[in-house]
């Protein structure tokens, strides 16, 4: 551990502010609590919101897992793990069930998370209304008035133009019938995992300076019309080339020379575990 820095890098005042905001976020599910996002030794937009949440949550008894697009071994995940390890000395793991604290970019692990586990999301754009309204003061007022008509209109226009909903990730959802929330750029495939979960979901947007939360056993409904229900990505007929799973979120890989398409689990630790027990 690098003793030139405070435990978990941030000073205690910063941690306390983030902790207070986290508690408010949990008390008001889906509401974006503004916070004073701190400078970190990486650029904003590279997961600083998630890192600040992780640093304010983590203690010596935690076991940390970091994933990036489902992978434990990508550059972003490895470097965040190294950074947090350098300033805390906490144990890290690739095993989802062993981890008490999981920081993620753009995926929710395939293995259902348990009570006591916390999933921290890195969020680039926390505001689900940003796509229909550029001004922060207006979106804030829209949330206050629960005015989500422009978002419904966008969904309708998508259906009229393309005969289907074209939102692939960042699919907005309604939390506890009150707040329209951006579940960070997770694929639609993961949206149902937010509803009535056992674990606590925390979302941190460093550049946009917002923290929000979805506590356990919270009602989360993905945006949909009565006659056009929400649909997640379908991988019917496709299996992972490594573990043969047919019920996971699959990455498509393309061989330019042979023209062959292959599929592989996005969640690498789950894939390895299934393959090892096959």
């Amino acid at each position: 551990m690098n003793n030139n820095y405070n435990f978990a890098f941030l000073d205690e005042g910063s941690k306390r502010e983030i902790r207070r905001c986290t508690l408010k976020a949990v008390a008001i599910p889906g509401y974006q609590v503004p916070f004073g996002s701190r400078e970190l030794p990486i650029g904003r937009g590279w997961g600083t919101g998630g890192i600040q949440l992780t640093l304010s949550l983590i203690g010596p008894n935690d076991v940390l897992k970091v994933i990036d697009q489902g992978s434990d071994e990508s550059v972003n995940a490895v470097n965040i793990k190294k950074f947090v390890g350098l300033c805390t000395d906490v144990e890290t793991t690739n095993n989802t069930t062993e981890a008490t604290l999981i920081q993620t970019r753009h995926r929710i692990p395939e293995i259902p998370l348990k009570d006591g586990q916390i999933l921290v999301f890195q969020v680039p754009i926390p505001e689900p209304l940003r796509i229909v309204e550029a001004r922060e003061e207006v979106t804030k007022k829209m949330h206050a008035e629960k005015d989500y008509a422009p978002l419904w209109l966008q969904l309708y226009e998508s259906l009229v133009k393309y005969q289907k909903v074209t939102i692939a990730s960042e699919y907005p959802c309604m939390v506890e019938d009150r707040y329209m929330t951006n579940p960070s750029p997770i694929p639609k495939f993961d949206n149902p995992k937010l509803h009535n979960a056992e674990c606590l979901y925390l979302f941190g947007a460093g550049r946009e300076k917002k923290i929000y939360a979805i506590p356990p056993h919270t009602k989360v409904v993905s945006l949909a019309f009565d006659d056009v229900p929400f649909e997640r990505e379908s991988f019917a007929g496709k299996t992972c080339r490594l573990c043969k799973s047919n019920n996971t979120y699959l990455d498509e890989m393309f061989d330019a020379q042979t023209g062959e398409k292959v599929y592989q689990c996005s969640d690498t630790s789950y894939c390895k575990e299934v393959a090892a027990h096959a």
């Binding site: 435990f7 941690k15 508690l23 949550l57 203690g59 356990p216």
Partner: peptide, 18 residues
């Protein structure tokens, strides 16, 4: 104020989440 605070905060967070 570093380690005890962190543990107490996690307990409060747990209590508020559930």
């Amino acid at each position: 104020t570093v380690f005890d605070s962190q543990e107490v905060f996690r307990l409060i967070l747990d209590a508020l989440s559930c």
